[in-house]
Write a protein that binds this DNA or RNA. Structure first.
Lengths: 142, 142
DNA sequence: TCGCATTTGTAAATGGCTTCCGTTTTCGCC
DNA sequence: GGCGAAAACGGAAGCCATTTACAAATGCGA
């Protein structure tokens, strides 16, 4: 528990109940899990925490600014969040079952840097989503 | 002029003034130009055309469904459109000057397909944006 | 423990986009 | 060239994720 507090303080944020709770949710979810602000809001409600939706948005934005979480904009609208990790990873999204998987590929990164280089451009970040379908059946919504 | 009409008819769309005008705007802009619905709406207003914003959105969506244009969702919100081309291309966005450049890279596509393959996934589409800065000065807004 | 700046919750506002609906336009058919 | 059903339009209202305004509540250094 002191751990989250450390993280928050390190980021220059006061340790408040909403921030701790939201951080815990993201933390418990583990890698590869992505939540919308709405998702997190619902989880808080369900566990009896009385946190406003506006606060969820505010906190997530602060976390993002502090580098604690990263925000992804999938095609078609709202953002999802996940705890930031050191290594850049990209996403694969199944348009049938909605499942999101991640991958890290150094060769890909290298190629992208080369391409940018040729264009006289220095890459600082990227968003890459592959859309398609799981090869093995995936009819059921996850 | 008959050309646009052909395209529209081919797409199963009646030839109406708003559709023709919007198509022309996209066409005249040429490759590498991206417009938001709002942009297009303003251009129509400026050239004295009395087209509703709702119609602009409708038409762009129809064009997209018909494969005439492609829609891109850059980080941070609203969509931009451009005339569709045969070859899939990706984007480089300068976060300083806002310039957008495009590229096509077969090796990249190959690598992405391989990665997806390893994950048991079949790619049907992708969105890839590289964010960064132009190496040569680009202070001035485009 | 106190004081006050920060943070929060609620409600209202925003902004991109879509839908509703009465009116206008297109275009196949005469 | 003119008719009329079907499609498309414009404007206003609606939707929905997100942000903002503001007064009340809270964290935390002194």
């Amino acid at each position: 528990m002191a751990l989250e507090n450390q993280e928050l303080r390190k980021a220059g944020l006061k340790v408040t109940l909403p921030r701790v709770k939201i951080y815990q949710i993201l933390e418990r979810a583990g890698e590869g899990q992505h939540f919308s602000a709405e998702d997190i809001y619902k989880m808080l409600m369900e566990s009896g925490e009385d946190v406003g939706l506006a606060t969820v948005y505010r906190v997530l934005t602060q976390f993002e600014a502090a580098g604690l979480v990263s925000r992804h904009h999938f095609e078609g609208g709202h953002s999802v969040f996940e705890l930031a990790r050191d290594e850049h990873h990209d996403h694969v999204v199944c348009v049938k079952c909605g499942r999101v998987r991640e991958f890290v590929d150094q060769e890909l990164t290298q190629r992208l840097n080369d391409i940018a280089e040729e264009l006289g451009f220095t890459v600082t970040d990227r968003t890459l989503y592959l859309y398609g379908v799981c090869r093995d059946g995936c009819e059921e919504d996850e």
